[in-house]
Design a protein around this nucleic acid. Structure first.
Lengths: 221, 221
DNA sequence: CTTTTAGGATGATATATATCATCATTGGCA
DNA sequence: TGCCAATGATGATATATATCATCCTAAAAG
């Protein structure tokens, strides 16, 4: 069942609007590795992450992907494609068991038409997603490998898990797809960080030992 | 003076709303190379390009910038920063004599609050800007130099000038900042393209001689 | 239960492109 | 008018990181 408070910025919605969403939506469960939507397919619903963790990625030719972001519960999924084109411009898949709320697109439009404050919140949200990719583009273009790996570690630490110790939820190959490199180069850099006592690394378990150095690497490339 | 039809999607605005914008806005002229707003300053107005050509760029340390997009008349400027943070996340400068319409941010908010259809258009517009950067990120990450230079040439040909012959409005250094490389590498690749009869190049004058090869380079990286 | 496959790790090698250096040309601007 | 700084062009060299190869382990598949 859908609770009102699972909808982002629900406090800006009236009881009627929340009720409309309740009637025009449903929840779908996914297992680890299940694809939620695939690049180049038509958009059909507004999606919200209810639980779990989702990777959003773009698929390139020759099997090379790049992971754009990791979505946590309480965030919209695929908004830019839905409003920008009506073909998904990227794919998404569950990286742990997850639930997604699907909302009818017409009902959502109806709400936006009548609720300017909510529309503005959505504009803010999409703008921030855009700015996030700007930063990622800067990182890719100007930083070299250690800086980009530091950026990836900080992303998990500050954004995804909000902790200095966590477990990578992805394979080395996928981590490389976040940092824009190959799995070999990622592994090498990670073991270097380990030898230099910047992080503790045991399999996928990570503990940041010098946040300062990580941040410096991230800042100075 | 501001004409209603200089406002993007003005057809969705009422006479009253256009009048409000007219009263709450003014036009500023810029010379070539003038900075319009600078990264890390506070956002203050909604901006629309009335005439000219604007580069939008992010400034990195050690004097390395990357140019995100070229804005033409009839487009908003800096929207993502205005709605996302309230500090500009990138800079913009005129690359030819230009005029910018500045609209009071509160008046604009007021319109958005009451005009859902317009808000949705804005959401669509910002979404497309976001998707554009996604694509750029893909290009930067997965393509090598010739592919990125081809991408840059296609950008001018298809988006900025809508013609297969045009004049680069930027220096080689700036062109390199679009393609995410150094000016030397850009120059080399451009002269290669010239020798391979893919383009004619005379100073900044460009004529695409084989659109097919350019597109193949762009697609296959 | 064995075989295959995917992930992780590490070394050797190749290569694309950045960096450094030089020189010619142009265009502000003093 | 003449000078200095910016731009464009090209060659030589350095280097970061991709690519290729191999090995080990664990999990999936037959």
């Amino acid at each position: 069942m859908i609770q009102g408070d699972q909808i982002p910025f629900y406090e800006l919605l009236t009881a009627d609007e929340l009720d409309l969403i309740g009637r025009k939506s449903n929840v779908v469960s996914y297992n680890k590795r299940d694809v939620i939507f695939k690049q180049d397919t038509r958009t059909s619903h507004i999606m919200i992450v209810k639980s779990g963790l989702i990777k959003v990625y773009k698929e390139g030719r020759n099997m090379k992907n790049i992971i754009l972001r990791i979505e946590k519960p309480g965030n919209y999924l695929g908004l830019m494609s839905i409003f920008g084109k009506d073909i998904h411009q990227y794919s998404s898949a569950a990286i742990e068991p997850s639930e997604i709320i699907f909302i009818d697109i017409d009902a959502f439009h109806e709400i936006l038409m009548g609720n300017g404050a909510y529309a503005i919140k959505l504009i803010e949200s999409i703008s921030n997603q855009g700015l996030f990719v700007f930063d990622k583009l800067m990182g890719q273009t100007l930083k070299q490998l250690p800086g980009r790996i530091a950026e990836m570690i900080l992303y998990f630490s500050e954004v995804v898990y909000e902790s200095e110790s966590f477990v990578f939820p992805l394979t080395r190959r996928e981590l490389a797809e976040i940092a824009g490199t190959t799995k070999e180069s990622l592994i090498r850099t990670l073991t270097e960080f380990k030898h230099d006592k910047i992080i503790d690394l045991d399999g996928s378990k990570v503990e940041i030992r010098s946040l300062k150095i990580i941040k410096t690497l991230n800042d100075l490339g």
